[in-house]
Design a protein around this nucleic acid. Sequence first.
DNA 1: TTGTACGCGTTATCAA
DNA 2: TTGATAACGCGTACAA
Lengths: 339, 339
Amino acid sequence: LLTKKATIKDVAESAGVALGTASRVINGASNVAPKFRQRVEAAIEQLGYRPNVLAQGMRRGVTRTIGIIIRDITLPGFASFVRAAQEILEEEGYALILTCSEDRKDRELDLLHILSSRRVDGLIMTSCSESNEELLAVRSSMGIPVVLLDRKSEGSSDSLSMAHNDGISQAVEHLMDLGHARIALITGSVEVHSARDRIKGFTETHKRKGIRLDKSLLRAREFGGDTGFVETSALLSRANPPSAIIAGGVAMLPGIMRAVRARGLSVPEDISIVGSGDSDLAQMATPPITVVCWDYAEVGRAAASLLVQRIAGTSELEAQNLVFPTQLVTRSSCSAPKA
Amino acid sequence: LLTKKATIKDVAESAGVALGTASRVINGASNVAPKFRQRVEAAIEQLGYRPNVLAQGMRRGVTRTIGIIIRDITLPGFASFVRAAQEILEEEGYALILTCSEDRKDRELDLLHILSSRRVDGLIMTSCSESNEELLAVRSSMGIPVVLLDRKSEGSSDSLSMAHNDGISQAVEHLMDLGHARIALITGSVEVHSARDRIKGFTETHKRKGIRLDKSLLRAREFGGDTGFVETSALLSRANPPSAIIAGGVAMLPGIMRAVRARGLSVPEDISIVGSGDSDLAQMATPPITVVCWDYAEVGRAAASLLVQRIAGTSELEAQNLVFPTQLVTRSSCSAPKA
DNA sequence: TTGTACGCGTTATCAA
DNA sequence: TTGATAACGCGTACAA
């Protein structure tokens, strides 16, 4: 039961060949006599030998392991992203070490160090800040390829992001076409691209449509915590509240809905709502929620593929900045504002 | 930028001491002169040295890595479980390699081999079958502690499970008290404990309440796929359909709801519904869904703690079978059946 | 074609 | 207290 795992040495011994020969068989080298090959394969079978990937890696200078740092795996969509990425990585012979930063700098720093100690060959992450120097320094000191998710860095990292700009534009237009003039956007800190991109779409569309933007309706604080609830509560208790709220982050919707319900308001009669990222919740809520969404699984696959290519060195030299399309899925949470 | 990571050799060299001395400083041994200690620490700082955990592990015969095999990280609750487990493991110096089996034997086998090759120190998993001999053989051949989630094994593995028995009993009683006599249960294969346990609660409660159970209302096929939708559709198209449906698995609810809506039925007027496992969906649906639920994060923490103890050898010798309580949260998806 | 020996980054043992 | 060295499991250059 507790028998030690067989090593290549055991295999060679059991097959009556030299270590090197066993190694050649295992790695599929051609220059080995059929007789020996057979004996080695039999020994492998009989001993249940499996190569020690870590020892291989030590020798080869790689670990075939990649680290992932995301905000929180429980957030809607993130699990799909991770699952898709893991599938690709597995196909390519990589294992995935999963960690969550909770969007905190100190934790992100710790995780960076942990993954560095484990010599991961690459990193997929959504940093909590694009400009923090300490984070940047540690990241680049690791000397490995990094694929940024929904973040952009002036450095040489690849990045994948969603066209939040477009998505929010479409949402704003949709609401304005319905007759809304006072639209609120609740999103994350301007320290990260996904928030800035949404804000850009938000303000530009106001300009384009010739509708004056009340700056106080633009709430850019943080993605985490209970931002959705807090900001919505504050917005709704104003003298002049918005007639529509756009969630500018995947974690916002539950809090927004709670705040709306807490005030006894009904959607869309009293207030229109647009969510970010699709979810069971958005689909099955009553009314079903209109959302700006994208395919998280596709992004996960792309992130993994890009990283693997980058590690293999086959990818072109310049950093790639892939942008994935968003889509406005209209459901029943938006209607004309009350007169 | 692409500067190789510093090794303990570099540190020793840079500090002008022997390798062993550097190692002693790094591992906090007491028998080292303050003068040398300082010089080593300075070198570590200056070189940004981080011990190579893999090399440490190779020497120590452990990897401080644990593997997790779950059905699908995107299933409601599983992400909470994983997140909680990861937090504990991180505190204990372990990294978590995440994989998903999709409840398929061939995949589970592959993953077992992959994790075996990586010499994980322990395993947390929900096997897709408790009786498959090949699975059992590979698992025990790994010679490492395994914590089973929602599964039970005649072997010596620890297991954590939920009191599904109780939960379903409460749900059935609740429905019977409301006046239901034809209650359906849709759950997974009897090959796994969580399905058998639910079935047990289901049948026993019928007996206790003196209500004859129509066996054809007990649907135990598989947890995955589109079971919720398929079984519900079949049930509802019968001449004598059930007046209530209990979801006996966390992935069932969306499919059940879709099937109900597809037939234009309304909840709870036409049919009562009870879900398994809480979720945003269950809470925010209209009507909010009554569920049998439990604390996935607590289970995740317990799984990680138990595994760590088992690896350290501090846990008692006999396998532990922890059972976590379930709770019936009544919302608005159940009412008296139509006359 | 096969075997030997070294090195990957560590820790631990032993001698100095 | 310190330093040198074997060992962990493996791949590979090089010698046989």
